[in-house]
């Protein structure tokens, strides 16, 4: 359990990251707010309470690794990495701009702290398996985390990778499923149902933990539990709200891949409790 002070700190960080997501997307004029906002608590909890990284030494060999397999959620990853100190927050204004390190989808060669370039869905879990296998081969105790989208698990490669994680008993791998129930063309069960989700991962040999994905204690408890199972990979199925925290974006499919206008940004900042024009922080 987090102390109330720790919890307040995470909430404060998450609020700023949501603000930054809204501002950077408004400046960029395009991008993916819905699936970025649904991940704010998960990535905040991971980067500010769980995983071991050093912003001053991004290539430190013993760091934990995080793979954002759903690469279109780049804004939340960039927001978290900037907040963590991997690069100056002002860079967020350059999202998707010519010459920026912040490409539309994460580029590991450009952004300190990005462990693998992603964007084409379905590939990140395989990469995370490779990382986890490397750590195990070296007898290293750093851990690999992967974050998948729920629509993304329609990709066949995910299930190839799911087999691999279990086959090679990657107990040093913890994955999150951002279960916000929506993809570009509608609700996941209407577009191409991956249900039942938990049963599938269990059947593939994973430890499965189902949580509410905006609850810090639940996120952190689940990660701790996943660490105790050293023989099986863990899938934390996190029920989330797409567009979480912004009144007009919540559970709205149309906000999967669209940037807020100036007026919408203003409304969004109000929703987050900001009273005036804000800068990225």
């Amino acid at each position: 359990m987090l102390t109330s002070q720790e919890q307040e700190h995470l909430q404060q960080v998450a609020r700023e990251i949501r603000k930054n997501i809204m501002i950077m997307l408004n400046r960029a004029g395009s991008g993916h707010p819905g699936g970025s906002l649904s991940l704010v608590e998960i990535l905040t909890a991971l980067y500010f309470h769980v995983i071991n990284v050093d912003p001053h030494h991004p290539a430190w060999e013993k760091r934990d690794r995080l793979v954002l397999s759903k690469g279109h959620a780049a804004p939340v990853l960039y927001g978290v990495l900037a907040k963590k100190g991997f690069f100056p927050a002002e860079e967020l204004y350059n999202l998707r701009k010519l010459g920026s390190i912040l490409q539309g989808h994460p580029d590991m060669k450009l952004v300190p702290g990005v462990e693998i370039s992603t964007g084409s869905l379905g590939q990140g879990l395989s990469v995370a398996n490779g990382m986890a296998l490397a750590a195990r081969t070296d007898g290293a105790d750093w851990r690999t985390y992967a974050v998948l989208g729920d629509g993304e698990i329609q990709e066949g490669q995910i299930w190839e990778a799911a087999m691999t994680s279990a086959h090679y008993r990657l107990g040093n791998l913890t994955a999150f499923l951002d279960y916000n129930s929506m993809q570009i063309d509608g609700r996941i069960e209407e577009v191409m149902s991956p249900l039942p989700v938990a049963e599938k991962w269990k059947a593939f040999g994973w430890e499965v933990i189902e949580i509410e994905g905006h609850d810090y204690n639940a996120i952190i408890d689940a990660v701790e539990k996943s660490r105790r199972d050293t023989e099986r990979p863990t899938m934390i199925i996190a029920a989330t709200v797409k567009g979480k925290g912004i009144s007009f974006m919540e559970e709205q499919v149309d906000w999967h891949g669209k940037a807020p206008s100036a007026e919408e940004l203003e409304q969004g900042l109000k929703d987050l409790g900001y009273q005036q024009k804000e800068e990225v922080t």
Partner: peptide
Amino acid sequence: PSRFFNMGISEADMIGTAAGLATAGKIP
């Protein structure tokens, strides 16, 4: 044997796994 991974009949996963190994300094 500890440095060989049979990925089964799943070439896409094999390439991704190789990529992950390479990020950690391996030569797959």
